[in-house]
């Protein structure tokens, strides 16, 4: 599984999204109500642990992390920097 699929799998299972037709890699997780701010913290914990990276406040300001695809892009960038 690639990075995107791993994150998608985590979000889908952890936030009990099931087969909601509106859910995909490009949907805004926060605007569409799939994830709240506590959930955002859980996603950060997950990607930091799972991929062994550290997301900084600068990353959050510089790169959007509203969709699965955007989060995966940040993770891939951080992994490449390691």
């Amino acid at each position: 599984m690639n990075v995107l699929e791993q994150i998608e799998g985590y979000v889908q299972e952890h936030f009990e999204i099931g087969d909601d037709p509106d859910f995909n890699e490009d949907v805004n997780l926060f605007d569409e109500g799939f994830v709240d701010s506590l959930g955002a913290t859980e996603i950060v914990f997950f990607i930091e642990d799972h991929f062994g990276i550290q997301i900084t406040q600068k990353d959050i300001i510089l790169y959007p992390m509203n969709t699965i695809r955007e989060i995966a892009q940040v993770v891939e960038r951080k992994m490449a920097e390691k």
Partner: peptide, 11 residues
């Protein structure tokens, strides 16, 4: 930035 408030962990 408003986006930071979505990620309170980093505030």
């Amino acid at each position: 930035p408003e986006t930071l408030f979505l990620f309170p962990l980093k505030l």
